[in-house]
């Protein structure tokens, strides 16, 4: 493994201060003040000025990742080591900042999740108050959401407290832990599994429609799928392959017609190369899109 990936941020780096230290609090307060100033500034900025402000922040944020990718990464960096020169000072700083910068996204997502919950509440409370015909489902959803939040947080607080370690043993569980377990493991996980298993039946119906002989393409698809399916059936592939071997009598060309060989050829020659081709296209598209977003060449809603 590359040593850089194993490196830990030293306790004294710019990005990490000791727990409850005055430096940590100073940085937290400065960050909060700067964040609030930016937020208020954006709210009161003239509409014409918003675009360049957003473009500026987008460019700065993107430049960080471009720099992280292009700037020479330290070779064989071990925890606690100090940089040898300016180039390494910058690369150490960039590498140490990575976890902090990534957590910015999580903080933003945390704020935005509140907006998501607001959207859910607004839609379903409106349905309930207006007596919509599906209001019952809205009640179920809101009650489930409320219960899950309450039991989740109550259990989390219990585990943070003095009894936290004891709660790993089921014998020490109380009402909160049983409630959370019932809602999460007993209901949610099971319903997730049920939804997932529905896919098996959908695959069948979709495959039936897709593999009907309607055109040349569908026939080719059907034949290829049939061969691959049969090759995965042990008894069928065994009988087929043994028959081919007896007919071939050691002829290497005829041996190519063993079912497992044909299926492998379809996978390696057609499937893998097609998938790689698609992945090249998707990767290039994402890179071009990222470049346009970074340089603010892409306007929001530019599809219209």
């Amino acid at each position: 493994m590359i040593p850089l990936l194993q490196a830990q941020a030293p306790a004294t780096s710019f990005w990490s201060e000791a727990f409850n230290s005055s430096e940590l609090w100073t940085k937290l307060i400065i960050t909060l003040v700067v964040g609030l100033v930016v937020m208020v500034g954006l709210l009161y900025a003239p509409i014409r000025a918003r675009k360049p402000i957003i473009a500026f922040f987008t460019f700065i944020s993107g430049a960080y990742w471009v720099l992280l990718y292009l700037w020479p990464k330290p070779i064989d960096r071990q925890p606690g080591e100090m940089p040898l020169n300016t180039v390494e000072t910058v690369s150490f700083w960039l590498a140490d900042s990575n976890n902090v910068v990534v957590s910015f996204t999580q903080i933003l997502t945390g704020f935005l999740l509140g907006l998501g919950i607001f959207s859910l509440l607004k839609i379903h409370l409106t349905k309930i108050t207006k007596g919509h015909k599906d209001a019952f489902f809205s009640i179920v959803l809101l009650v489930s959401m409320g219960l899950m939040i309450w039991f989740g947080y109550a259990d989390w607080f219990d585990r943070l407290g003095e009894r936290g370690a004891m709660l790993d043993n089921r014998d020490n569980w109380g009402f909160t832990q049983y409630g959370r377990d019932f809602l999460f493991e007993g209901l949610l996980q099971q319903m997730d599994a049920a939804m997932f298993s529905v896919i098996a039946f959908y695959i069948l119906s979709a495959a039936y429609r897709a593999f009907r002989v309607r055109s040349v393409e569908a026939t080719i698809l059907l034949s290829a799928a049939l061969l691959v399916l049969l090759s995965l059936m042990g008894a069928v592939s065994f009988v087929w392959d043994e028959n081919v071997k007896s007919i071939a009598n050691g002829n290497p060309f005829i041996l190519n017609f063993q079912l497992t060989e044909v299926a492998q050829w379809i996978r390696n020659t057609f499937q893998t190369s097609s998938i790689r081709g698609i992945q090249f296209g998707v990767g290039l598209g994402a890179l071009a899109m990222g470049l346009r977003l970074w340089l603010s060449l892409e306007k929001p809603g530019s599809g219209s």
Binding site: Q8, P10, A11, T12, P74, I75, D76, R77, Q78, P79, G80, E81, M82, P83, L84, E88
Partner: peptide
Amino acid sequence: EKVKVERPIDPNYVPE
């Protein structure tokens, strides 16, 4: 190739 770069150790470093 595996290479070793010798760097000074931060005097304030406390191993995790």
